[in-house]
């Protein structure tokens, strides 16, 4: 089936409440065909609920979800054929072989019996598990299980693949391999929706990102745009002795300085505008910074100015408080 809707995914005014507790509060976003779209947010921000609503596992309290123009609740069977899901927990039948896991998926999704062996072989090859197809999944490493879960999700040739924390708990090599699959999906014309806690991963993979916090979408855009809009330049300095408290107080009063912190002799100063105002160039704040340091009687041993990381954008938007 070739879906003909303009957007792969269209979410409008999405709300989800459990009693008086609102998990999602009016979420709006759209994912274009062939795009890799990342959903970021701290624990409890509503990412998994959003995914459940997209797949039809949960019912919205208000708002709409359309997957290639289909309502995942009322047109469940059609919508599910277009969706490939890689849940956070790999959720495989570990007592069974990799082949049997894939065969079950093929049967459930109605892949014609004649095509099944070829599709299963192709997916095992994609997951680099051809040699282990007849091994029990319980004997696989975490990375192998994750690859098999991705292969299973792709088996019925879905148009929209969503991956919930696809690289959680896997080693560096496996992570690289999974990234390659995700990029290959995009190259194959598929749309990918992923959630991740690794901001480096989001930067590397996603065409666009949405940051969720407390059930609201607090920012959306390309990684570069997000950094440029919300991020700060960061000045890092190493002093000849521990930074005095008076220096930190002085630094915080300088124009453009949003945050100053110290750990022993290491000093870190974030420079930039707050959300909604124009960003200030980091270099402009260097001179007053150095003057303040020298005035405090300290000498600078090492100084650097760098671009903000996505982590810092994320923390600036969602705060540092633990959410567990």
């Amino acid at each position: 089936m070739t879906p003909d809707a303009a957007q792969a995914l269209d979410v409008r005014g999405l709300e989800k409440r459990f009693g008086a507790f609102a998990v999602l509060r009016g979420l709006d976003f759209a994912v274009g065909r062939g795009e890799i779209y990342g959903l970021l947010g701290p624990n409890g921000s509503g990412k998994t609920t959003t995914l459940n609503l997209i797949s039809g596992l949960a019912e919205p309290s208000a708002g709409t979800v359309r997957v290639f123009g289909l309502d995942p609740r009322r047109q469940a069977a059609e919508a599910r054929r277009l969706l490939g899901v890689v849940p956070q927990e790999t959720a495989l039948y570990e007592e069974l072989t990799a082949e049997r896991n894939l065969a079950f998926h093929a049967e459930l999704f109605g892949i014609p019996p004649g095509q099944r062996p070829a599709r299963i072989a192709a997916m095992l090859e994609l997951a680099q598990l051809t040699e282990r197809g007849r091994s029990r999944v319980s004997t696989f490493s975490g990375g192998m299980k994750r690859r098999l879960a991705i292969a299973r999700a792709l088996l019925h040739d879905p148009q929209l693949v969503y991956l919930d924390e696809p690289t959680l708990g896997v080693d560096v090599q496996a992570r690289r391999a999974i990234w390659d699959y995700i990029l290959a999906m995009k190259a194959g014309g598929r749309t990918v929706l992923l959630t991740t806690n690794y901001l480096e991963e989001a930067s590397a993979l996603c065409d666009r990102l949405a940051i969720l916090d407390r059930g609201r979408l607090v920012a959306e855009g390309t990684p570069a745009a997000l950094k440029a809009r919300y991020g700060e330049s960061v000045v890092e300095a190493e002093l000849d002795r521990d930074a005095p408290a008076t220096l930190l107080q002085t630094l915080r009063t300088l124009p453009g300085v949003r945050e100053a912190s110290a750990e022993g002799p290491r000093l870190s100063v974030c420079i930039g505008a707050g959300p909604g105002s124009e960003p200030a160039p980091g270099g402009a704040a260097l001179a007053p910074f150095l003057q303040a340091v020298l005035a405090s009687g300290c000498a600078v041993r090492h100084l650097s100015l760098r671009e903000p990381a996505l982590d810092e954008v994320f923390l600036a938007l969602t705060g540092r408080g633990l959410r567990d």
Partner: peptide, 13 residues
Amino acid sequence: ERGTIKELLLAPV
């Protein structure tokens, strides 16, 4: 318990 219920719930059956 093993989470495979999602495989069943998300299948077009």
